[in-house]
Design a protein around this nucleic acid. Structure first.
Lengths: 141, 141
DNA sequence: TTTAATTGTTACGGTAAGTGTAACAATTAT
DNA sequence: ATAATTGTTACACTTACCGTAACAATTAAA
């Protein structure tokens, strides 16, 4: 799954959980969102480790939100599911040749991509799940 | 090549051309930058189509810059070599299931990623090759 | 205590994408 | 003519990704 697909899939699952009063298992979420149940469990277990959702194992277990929707930031979700730096902005330092044209320009791009990364995260820190729910429902209801 | 690698490789080649007084062929640039000559020709031919460099076929041909270094924007370079939207920020609309949880949330992310894209390009439009040369040489000279 | 359901994790085969290289037609200066 | 060079295509190789399956661990309920 690409970074962006992971993110949107996670948000889909979280939106479904936000709607539901009771805990939901991965199969139920899968049926409603179209996302593969195994894939969902992988994503949700990551969100669990970051205290965004709560999981209950065993019969009649399932997932539920662990915070209010206005306390869940898009940036948190992103960081929970993605270990790499956001959106693959890492310059792969591939060329063995370590002339000026590699070392210094690589440094330059690592720095640039880091800055872009910071901007993106800043933007995502301003977005809560509550807002996403509200925005996506303007069309629906 | 990832988007970021393409970009940094392109800039490496352009920096080399900026240094050189005479046109340079792909083999010479390859030797100095460590980038495969065939790969270089692919990138440089794209930069050619966008009037960033000039190419001369035939014996004693080669590549040279087609603009002053302060007229070459990083954003131009990026757009020349990359047809996809920058840095893979497209949300792949993969799930067939077109419930609310797909259609509206997909719309939301397409929009968000588009905004991020605009920010990144805005940032890259402010950076010229001249500046990159200056910055990367602070360390060298 | 047994049973059934569910998470969390690992494994795996198939498919797509990226990489490096080679090859060669088209072109052009000498 | 000849040699050199770009521009493009092709190809094999590797790597990454995807979807799914499988199953141990766990737990509520009967």
């Amino acid at each position: 799954m690409s970074a962006s697909t992971k993110l949107s899939n996670s948000v889909k699952a979280l939106c479904y959980l936000a709607d539901s009063k009771k805990p939901c298992n991965s199969i139920e979420i899968s049926e409603k969102t179209g996302i593969n149940a195994s894939k969902l469990r992988k994503l949700l277990s990551l969100l669990c480790k970051n205290q965004i959702v709560q999981s209950n194992k065993g019969a009649f277990g399932g997932f539920s939100l662990n915070k209010n929707t206005d306390e869940i930031l898009l940036q948190e979700i992103y960081c929970a599911i993605e270990d790499r730096k956001a959106f693959d902005l890492h310059s792969s330092l591939e060329n063995k040749n370590n002339s000026f044209y590699n070392s210094e320009i690589n440094k330059y791009f690592l720095d640039l991509f880091e800055n872009i990364q910071v901007d993106i995260e800043k933007k995502m820190r301003k977005i809560t799940l509550k807002e996403i729910l509200k925005k996506t429902r303007t069309y629906k209801r």
